[in-house]
Design a protein around this nucleic acid. Structure first.
Lengths: 178, 178
DNA sequence: CGAACGATGTATCGCGGCGATATAATCACC
DNA sequence: GGTGATTATATCGCCGCGATACATCGTTCG
């Protein structure tokens, strides 16, 4: 997840940790929080895996005054890895975050893959919706008001996501026809 | 989180792990998934902390055929701990799950505390809403369609949650007046 | 009859992510 | 010249998850 997002951002330009976190927040803050406690360890992991490298000092004299910062850039292996992650959807569970990251990089994703990701997401959200409906009728009247309220809220937001996904898919199709 | 939910469930009756997980799923599945990979370690932790104890074999002969199961029950310390967790809201961030658990146990929560929890939640969701609005206007037109769509979706669901919380709070107040 | 399957049941392992925290330099402002 | 916000990197321990393993029971189907 983190790995996916970082590789995607570094695809735009080389960056250092702090900057990555800000971009992450702007790009994906609407659906997920990102902490430094994951950022730096993930960067180290990516570095050890050879997916990113620390850029040389470069411009050591120019604009001095900035304090120590480590700028990372993608390696060819990193680009390859990102392409892999882009192409296949993550684990198909309703609480998996990777869909959001996919969406954030959709403008760089081929149309057929976009469609596959969207439909995969829709399928798993629909499954969850059915599960919730079934549970709501099963547990019926025997649960207290607050729990039922929680269920209603969960079901409604799931239904809304399905509708949203349908719109996205429809838009995708109309674009394809044109 | 897990700890909170487990203590709450064991408040109803002594139970074993598998049963707890099923109840968890019925009660809170609408907003959160629960895995065994957390359940059993959490039970051990609670046991080590003296908040729960393994019930004696009890009825060893009756209804035999059932296979090995460990039934846990609350200790006085466990009840105390649960009361503490009930009374004060968890970390006030929009992605904190503990609100859902609180809600699930609302029927056992005093009215004034219910109100405090609801208002705390509303405050932090409203803050997030403002942050998202600000970011949407700031990043304005310079972001691609898909990312904007993600933002819109995040903002809308936040707004819906605020409305929902307002309803819950209003209902709470009307009940108090009566 | 037995095989196969799905539910019941307990448990662990490694890893990914988080909150808290430490450290430090720079900048803006009064 | 001090105070606080912002920029910047980093680690620690804990929590929760997915995968996996294993054993028993009831049912169903060939």
């Amino acid at each position: 997840m983190f790995e996916f997002a970082l590789l995607g951002l570094l695809h735009e330009a080389p960056m250092h940790g702090y900057e990555l976190r800000k971009r992450l927040h702007d790009l994906l803050g609407a659906f997920r929080a990102f902490s430094y406690g994951s950022l730096y360890p993930t960067l180290r992991r990516l570095q050890r895996a050879g997916l990113i490298v620390e850029e040389g000092p470069e411009e050591p004299a120019l604009s001095w005054g900035r304090r120590a910062r480590k700028v990372y850039k993608l390696t060819p292996e990193g680009k390859e890895r990102f392409a892999d992650l882009l192409a296949n959807a993550g684990p198909q569970t309703w609480d998996d975050d990777s869909f959001g990251v996919h969406l954030a990089f959709f403008s760089r994703t081929p149309a057929d893959i976009r469609m596959r990701i969207l439909e995969g997401r829709r399928r798993c959200v629909e499954e969850r919706r059915e599960g919730l409906r079934e549970r709501l009728t099963r547990t019926g009247e025997q649960i207290d008001r607050y729990t039922r309220e929680l269920h209603r809220q969960g079901l409604e937001s799931t239904e809304r996501e399905v509708r949203w996904l349908n719109e996205l898919i429809a838009h995708e199709q109309s674009e394809q026809d044109e």
